[in-house]
Design a protein around this nucleic acid. Structure first.
Lengths: 225, 225
DNA sequence: ATCCCTTTGTGAAGCGATGCACAAAGTCGG
DNA sequence: CCGACTTTGTGCATCGCTTCACAAAGGGAT
């Protein structure tokens, strides 16, 4: 069944979605520098991808370019923002205010993209009550209340590994369906809940693998392409 | 051309490499709990992947399982560790000691996996001299000396976006070929240098995209599978 | 020693993403 | 108004990863 008036295909490939933020970042930089129009070639360069891929990605959103000219920077920023849902304001709660939680609370990249830190929670009475990034750290006991009253729809888990699943369960029970997990555990969640995970040590391990290869693997195959 | 004695294929798929740390984490947990043997089914469950995928991944390393029984946990931990290069000790330097750099320096997941933080560097005279995680923060001026004298082979960039490319260039000139970049910029590096990037706000944006879809896209297609 | 049961390792099909290459569509100068 | 030039949008071939499904391999019971 095709959508009649809304001809834009609603099924955007996951790989494309993952790159849209990249394009958005590059476009924002250009907008700040006063660039009005950009070609797929230049934008691809700035985002670190191949220009054919960029064009195909953008074509999934619609036909927003002008042949012979390129893309209007401001317009494209708006279209990508809208597609990603960044034109609305998202309330985010961060659970676990250790070193990482603190860093995240202070991270400017969130606020500048429509994400508002609406709550900081921790179980440790030692940190509850502290002021971080202009917010008061609350006790994990009020987790559900914070989520409901402040309309939190995305939760960031920065707790120790052992606490993550329990907090996750409570958060899901409170109706949250989007979770960003920094704890090094595999969370089990019901269908319909999205979990994205970031594991800092995994990235290092992948680097170590390639570094070992370069440094003198059995066949000494230095990255040559 | 097949390798004659070394039957193990040296070209491990990138997707497989990215999952090996996941298996390793699950296996370490099992080893701690005293589990001696594990089936592909159970390990896959613990790592959050499909069992066929797990078996294919492991088959790229060699034939380390026993049919009818499963995999020996200790032995598999060793094999994966060796493949990832974690049996050796890696010296890591962290450049940029803001909130994030601090969190990384204190992150236990590094040390426990063969990564040793061998240097903390920053340009801000205010933080130079501070002691963080048992290390003294040094001035960025001595970057090259630190890298050379302490055998640093992996550098973590946690600087502001504007400083990242310059630091990157210096680090590459000093001979480093593996970089983990937290700054929200596309780094340009010569061939043979590996860069992996982690952008915290990108993950949130991807979540926002899916959340928007769930909450009431044009066709109201709630994730139903 | 043989049979049955479990679980691995892998051939092959399926699926989605990538990249090439070009026709279509638009701009701009004359 | 036309023709040359630029750049988009996309059909198509290709590639790599995923998943299925099953033969081969081993363990344990009798």
């Amino acid at each position: 069944m095709k959508s009649p008036s809304q001809s834009r295909d609603r099924g955007i490939p996951e790989a494309t979605v993952a790159r849209l933020p990249l394009y958005l970042r590059a476009l924002n930089g250009m907008a700040e520098r006063g660039v009005a129009t950009v070609s797929s070639e230049d934008l691809a360069m700035a985002a670190g991808v191949n220009s054919a891929k960029l064009r195909k990605d953008l074509s999934h959103l619609g036909s927003y370019g002008t042949r012979g000219v390129g893309y209007d920077v401001e317009y494209l920023v708006y279209q990508i923002s809208r597609e990603l849902g960044l034109t609305q304001d998202w309330a985010v709660a961060i659970v676990g205010v250790g070193n990482l939680g603190r860093a995240l609370a202070n991270y400017g990249g969130f606020v500048s993209r429509g994400f508002r830190v609406a709550g900081l929670l921790d179980a440790d009475p030692e940190v509850v009550g502290d002021d971080i990034a202009g917010l008061n750290v609350e006790h994990i006991d009020v987790l559900e209340a914070v989520i409901e009253r402040r309309g939190v729809s995305i939760v960031v888990l920065a707790t120790p590994a052992v606490a993550a699943q329990e907090v996750c369960d409570r958060v899901v029970a409170a109706g949250v369906t989007s979770i960003l997990n920094f704890a090094p555990v595999v969370l089990s969640v019901p269908d319909g809940v999205d979990v994205r995970k970031v594991d800092l040590s995994i990235e290092l391990q992948i680097l170590a693998f390639h570094e070992q290869r370069k440094a003198g693997g059995p066949l000494m195959a230095v990255d040559s392409q």
